[in-house]
């Protein structure tokens, strides 16, 4: 794979079947390569963040997607990257957080983790439970740049209503 023109394409629009297929069909037709992606439904919207390898600039890429953008009422954003694919960083710790939903959980937890040397590589969160008693659930993966003890200490000092588990990710490569 030697296409140097990698871009990060962000698409957001009302969720409905066929968005991914329509976008990828247009990109295939234009000779683009697709790389790593994160796509998920958030709050009734469908969100796509997709690495696209294609000649030309971001304006060109947006132009190719014009008909799909209109059809699916998407908002389109392109970041042109100097980097390419394969910039993976292997996380070495997994932190799971849950509690009765309230304002400030993410800020409190991520602030404590950042101070203790965590570089987040992946964060996913959900609000579950019933409407009147929502539960906040968050999975964080990251690199413990100062090792695990500072993270354990930081988590031990969180508010008592936040449940946290921390486990090392011991990569097995064979």
């Amino acid at each position: 794979m030697n296409t140097p023109h990698w871009k990060l394409l962000t698409l957001v629009g009302p969720d409905r079947p066929g968005i991914v297929a329509a976008v990828s069909r247009v990109l295939l037709g234009a000779g683009a390569e697709l790389g790593e992606a994160s796509m998920m439904r958030l709050g009734g919207l469908f969100t796509i963040m997709l690495m696209v390898g294609i000649e030309g600039d971001g304006v060109h890429l947006k132009g190719l997607l014009e008909s799909v953008r209109n059809e699916f009422k998407l908002r389109v954003h392109v970041d042109e990257l100097n980097a390419g694919l394969h910039r993976r960083i292997d996380p070495d710790v997994l932190i799971t957080v849950y509690g009765a939903d309230r304002a400030g959980i993410v800020a409190e937890v991520t602030d404590a983790l950042a101070r203790a040397g965590l570089s987040i590589t992946d964060l996913r969160s959900d609000v579950a439970g019933s409407e009147d008693k929502p539960i906040y659930i968050m999975n964080i993966e990251g690199v413990a740049q100062q090792g695990l003890p500072p993270l354990e200490q930081a988590l031990a000092n969180l508010s008592s209503d936040i449940r946290v588990t921390l486990s090392p990710i011991e990569l097995m490569r064979g």
Partner: peptide
């Protein structure tokens, strides 16, 4: 996973 806080 093991709890990171004893009370959990």
């Amino acid at each position: 996973r093991k709890p990171a806080k004893g009370k959990a």
